[in-house]
Design a protein around this nucleic acid. Structure first.
Lengths: 215, 215
DNA sequence: AGGCAACGATGCACGACGTGCAGCGAATAT
DNA sequence: ATATTCGCTGCACGTCGTGCATCGTTGCCT
């Protein structure tokens, strides 16, 4: 056990850093090769060679190539929920979701490029979209839990939270898709990215409200 | 070519019927074995033996065991959209979706038992849930198209239809899940099934409206 | 009826996937 | 300095999914 600090805030240590490094190398190689050849024509062996690790090591970090690409999505979704939890409780639900999403954008805006490529891959490749939906389904439960806390209702047998979580995530997904479809909104400065995506989110949420209010 | 009739309404012919029969046998065997051992501990070879076909034949009908189970979901979703298309255009959107869903229930209520088991399996098995989400993502596009037609708007660059489709399917999925969670609502008469599910659907849609209107 | 074309079922081969297991060597704790 | 933890690696093995050639049945045509 580390003598200096709590494990969460502690300096990662060399071992940990190396581990993270290889994981990153594997992830990057997967995204790059998938971008070049399409996920179907990439073998794990190719990825391993490109990342300069053994095949076995690849599987030590990810259960499949798809998951390696999806790692971005999973992380983003987790962060989104985390941010949502710290929004002020008096804020309207949809606003809280919206702001949480924008905060996520601001956070890894600097990472940018690689993430964008991965997100586009997920958006355009059927196999990856399928896996994305699976990830979102997992996070739907987590978000629903957070909403029950926010509303102060009984976690079990509460329909509202689950429906709200599902609707919110679906809407955000569509907004992100639409934004990714923009031909130019690639490597803008931070401000442009945020405002561009914010516009799409507003648009999508407006559509949701419109559907309910105007049958 | 069949001399008597249009191919769609024509008598299927022996070949076709045999094909359907084996497909059904395979599907049934998959569901049954999965129910017994869990999808993880079932091999395609086991299924093939149980259905009395070759392994190769299995893959001629389904690309994986998961898809064999998911076949129910895929069919139901397709029928749902078909029914939605024939709802009167002046009907409110959510009502149309609701009625279409109920019509689907009425349709294969008689098939009942096997379908219920399959749906429960999908609901409880992570792997199958993931595949379900993938199927729903496909159907989301189809439903969005149908909504586009209904609203008479431009299919491209219309956010409302996609958002509406996603929200509707998510809500229906949750309603179905909740209904499947009922311990007793298994093999009731037609009326009970319909009303039971109808109640869940109303509940879920109400939750959706509630979320939007009461932030 | 008889022969020909269409088509589903089958077996075979092969590459890829994913996991359990054991050994090695570097990082870390004592 | 020594013991221990832990990530990386190679190996073996069962399973998956597909292309290909073949066989037998069904359906169509004259």
């Amino acid at each position: 056990m580390n003598a200096t600090d709590d494990p969460a805030t502690a300096a990662p240590g060399l071992r940990e850093r190396k581990k993270l490094a290889t994981r990153e190398a594997v992830r990057a190689a997967t995204v790059r090769l998938t971008e070049q050849h399409g996920i179907g024509d990439v073998t794990v062996e190719m990825i391993a060679r490109a990342a300069d690790v053994s095949v076995r090591t690849f599987f030590n970090h990810f259960p499949s190539k798809e998951e390696a690409v999806l790692d971005v999505v999973r992380t983003r979704a987790a962060v989104l929920i985390e941010e949502f939890r710290r929004r002020p409780p008096e804020e309207p639900l949809l606003d809280a979701v919206r702001e949480a999403a924008l905060t996520v954008i601001d956070r890894d805006d600097a990472l940018g490029r690689v993430h964008l490529v991965a997100l586009r891959l997920v958006r355009d490749t059927p196999t990856l979209r399928a896996h994305e939906m699976a990830v979102l389904a997992e996070q739907e439960a987590a978000l629903a839990g957070a909403i029950t806390v926010r509303l102060g209702v009984d976690p079990a047998s509460d329909t509202r939270s689950v429906v709200a979580a599902a609707a919110a995530l679906s809407t955000l997904r569509i907004a992100l898709d639409r934004w990714l479809a923009r031909p130019d909104g690639d490597l803008r400065g931070t401000g442009a990215v945020r405002s561009g995506l914010a516009a799409e989110i507003d648009d999508a949420f407006a559509a949701l409200v419109h559907m309910v209010e105007r049958p």
